[in-house]
C-alpha cells in the first residue's frame, strides 16, 4: 500500500492526529486538515488520491467542501465520514459525487478497504481518459 496519498479532513484534532498516524504506519502518505479551507488549500498545492471528509464541520461544511473538490479536482475520490446518520445529507453527498458515505465510528480495516477501492476507481478513470486522448 505504498504511495497512496490520503487527505483526512476533520475538526476533531485528536481523531485527526490518530488516524493520520495509523495510516502512515500502514504506509500511506497521509495528511490531516482541520477544516475545509485548509483542505482546499492543501489540494491546491499537492496531489491527493483520496480525501476522507467529515460531514459536520464549523465553517465550510463537508458537503460544500465535497462540491468544491468535485468541481475543481473531479478525479479525486471523496469518502464522507458522518457521525450523525442524516439520510438527507447522505443523498446529497452521493449526488454530489462522493465515492462513499461511511458512518462513524468506522473500523480502520473497513476504511482501508474503501480507500483502496476509491484509489482503484481513480486509476481506472485516469486510464479511461488517457485512452480517450490517445485515440
Amino acid at each position: 500500500m505504498s504511495d497512496i496519498r490520503v487527505l483526512i479532513v476533520d475538526d476533531e484534532v485528536d481523531f485527526l492526529e490518530t488516524i493520520v498516524k495509523r495510516l502512515q504506519d500502514r504506509g500511506f502518505i497521509a495528511k490531516g486538515a482541520e477544516n475545509g479551507e485548509q483542505a482546499l488549500d492543501y489540494l491546491q498545492h499537492n496531489t491527493v488520491d483520496t480525501v476522507i471528509l467529515d460531514v459536520k464541520m464549523p465553517g465550510m461544511d463537508g458537503l460544500q467542501v465535497l462540491q468544491t473538490i468535485k468541481l475543481r479536482w473531479p478525479l479525486v475520490e471523496v469518502i464522507m465520514l458522518t457521525g450523525h446518520a442524516s439520510v438527507e445529507s447522505g443523498i446529497q453527498g452521493m449526488q454530489l459525487g462522493a465515492f462513499d458515505y461511511v458512518m462513524k465510528p468506522a473500523r480502520l480495516d473497513d476504511l482501508l478497504q474503501k480507500i483502496r477501492q476509491a484509489v482503484e476507481r481513480k486509476k481506472l478513470q485516469e486510464e479511461k481518459i488517457h485512452r480517450a486522448q490517445n485515440q
Binding site: T82, H84, A85, S86, V87, G90, D100, Y101, V102, M103
Partner: peptide, 10 residues
C-alpha cells in the same frame, strides 16, 4: 448494508 446503516437511525 452500508446504505441501510445510513438510514437505520431515521
Amino acid at each position: 448494508e452500508d446504505m441501510v446503516r445510513l438510514v437505520e437511525k431515521e
